[in-house]
């Protein structure tokens, strides 16, 4: 579904997993369009700088990506709002660490409206934060999962995903992995559930 706001919360210490999950979602949502990734200046020190060589390994083309560094969440939200007016953009990702005041119900509603108007999808990537009231279409909790293989190669990135909110569908809990070759989410060998979400479609 396009033009909506998705929230992805990283479990503490699983920021890289959540980053990979969002990168996968953006590939699903806008495979060949440009992408704006907004993050606070300190994000690189705290969680590591987004690396294009790591992105290409996931099947994500770094040439499509623009990075914007902002001083605080308020600037980031304003920039995201502005970026949503650009219909050529495939998606906007905004990394937010903690629960800043600027990100309140009002900000969330503004983003939801702007996204719906121009059908550009926006992902809020939340680190070190607890979910609070918002107008997001979906809300995901993501953590990395130990690989099940005991061979030299530990396989594709795998996630344990909780869909705790879904305004137009079921919620659920899945184990899934990101197929870097097929560029699609698939049920992982650790999956004990039955539903496989091809999220973002």
């Amino acid at each position: 579904m396009h033009g909506v706001l998705h929230e992805v919360f990283a479990a503490i210490g699983h920021e890289a997993a959540a980053t990979g999950f969002v990168a996968g979602l953006t590939v699903r949502v806008a495979a060949d369009k440009h992408l704006l990734w907004i993050r606070p200046i300190f994000s690189g020190h705290e969680f590591g700088e987004l690396s294009p060589t790591g992105l290409i390994e996931l099947g994500f083309d770094p040439a499509r990506l623009f990075l914007l560094s902002v001083a605080n969440a308020g600037d980031g939200l304003r920039a995201a709002h502005d970026a949503l007016s650009c219909v050529a953009l495939g998606a906007v990702v905004i990394e937010i660490s903690g629960s800043p005041k600027a990100l309140d119900m009002m900000a969330s509603r503004r983003l939801t409206l702007a996204a719906a108007q121009k059908s550009v999808t926006i992902f809020l990537l939340r680190f070190s934060a607890q979910p609070n009231a918002s107008t997001a279409e979906t809300r995901w909790l993501v953590r990395g999962v130990a690989s099940q293989t005991q061979s030299e190669d530990w396989g594709y990135p795998s996630f344990e995903v909780d869909l705790v909110r879904n305004r137009h569908g079921k919620t659920g809990h899945w184990f899934m992995e990101w197929n870097c070759n097929g560029r699609i989410f698939q049920s992982s060998s650790a999956d004990r559930g039955t539903v496989v979400s091809t999220a973002g479609n």
Binding site: A16, T19, G44, G48, S51, P52, I56, E57, P62
Partner: peptide, 20 residues
């Protein structure tokens, strides 16, 4: 161009987030 380091069907060989 951007080139993958991993071989097909392999796990990523380069980290997604790097510390400067």
């Amino acid at each position: 161009g951007w080139k993958e380091t991993r071989k097909a069907k392999e796990a990523p060989r380069r980290a997604l987030r790097l510390f400067s």
